[in-house]
């Protein structure tokens, strides 16, 4: 049974479902939603007596145990010690390519974003990369990215054990099918229809008449999110935690 929750809470809960079974999740310093999803998975696993989940927040001294500098994350990923990671993107296309560099031409991009960070590498090595971008619009979800920071698919003869697993926005959730190199609409968030999603997406995708609604958390999980998870988040992301609903 689903209880009334905010869109952000729905996304956090959905992230925790996408992370199911992962033992070590790495999240960026400025990614409070993925961190919240990972913390929720950790708490839920603990409640059910399942394995411990390690959450490494990059750039945080307190919430990661790396002692070999920021290169240790990349070494860990290459060895298969990171199960899941998140990527955003100024543009994401229907083939799972991610653009973190800029739009409208390169190198003198009229619209320039910060840069590729570790994406060109981690996308190959982390088994479950979750593409997370709240804005769901044709300008973000494009047919073809203007610059490939990290490619969705790779030719034969190149080592690749990781890649896109799912794409989550504030309107829908897609899975990525590695055999066809295409996204498949898995569920639509409450208040939206498959027709809305087709309208809002700049690329074609499979199962585009999907009628599944993205499930929200039950009352018990929602209480956990509004209590324990909210306090855990406040240690690293005080402003974000304050923006979430509090336990009654």
């Amino acid at each position: 049974m689903t209880t009334e929750c905010t869109n952000r809470e729905l996304l956090i809960y959905t992230i925790s479902r996408l992370l199911d079974g992962v033992e070590h999740v790495a999240v960026g310093m400025s990614s409070p939603m993925p961190a919240a999803g990972a913390m929720l998975l950790r708490a839920l696993n603990k409640k059910q007596g399942l394995g411990d989940v390690q959450v490494s927040i990059l750039g945080s001294v307190r919430h990661n145990s790396f002692t070999s500098g920021s290169e240790e994350l990349f070494d860990c990923a290459a060895q298969g010690r990171i199960g899941a990671f998140f990527l955003g993107g100024g543009q994401i296309d229907g083939k799972g390519n991610v653009n973190l560099v800029g739009a409208g031409g390169y190198p003198n991009s009229p619209v320039r974003w910060p840069g590729s960070y570790g994406s060109a590498y981690l996308y190959f090595l982390v088994p479950r990369v979750i593409l997370f971008r709240e804005e769901h619009s044709p300008r973000v979800l494009v047919d073809q990215v203007d610059f490939i920071s990290a490619p969705g698919a790779t030719e034969d003869g190149v080592y690749r054990r990781g890649g896109p697993h799912a794409l989550l926005t504030n309107a829908a959730m897609f899975s990525f099918q590695r055999d066809t190199g295409r996204f498949r609409l898995e569920s639509v968030h409450p208040g939206r229809s498959a027709a809305d999603i087709r309208e809002m997406t700049g690329f074609s995708f499979d199962n585009d008449r999907c009628e599944v609604e993205t499930p929200g958390p039950d009352a018990e999980i929602l209480a956990l999110m509004r209590g324990q998870i909210r306090s855990e988040l406040a240690e690293t992301y005080p402003q974000f935690a304050a923006s979430l609903p509090e336990a009654a």
Partner: peptide
Amino acid sequence: PIRGIIGSDVLKN
């Protein structure tokens, strides 16, 4: 040597 990167425009440029 380093893993990944192949197929990206980062490499091309």
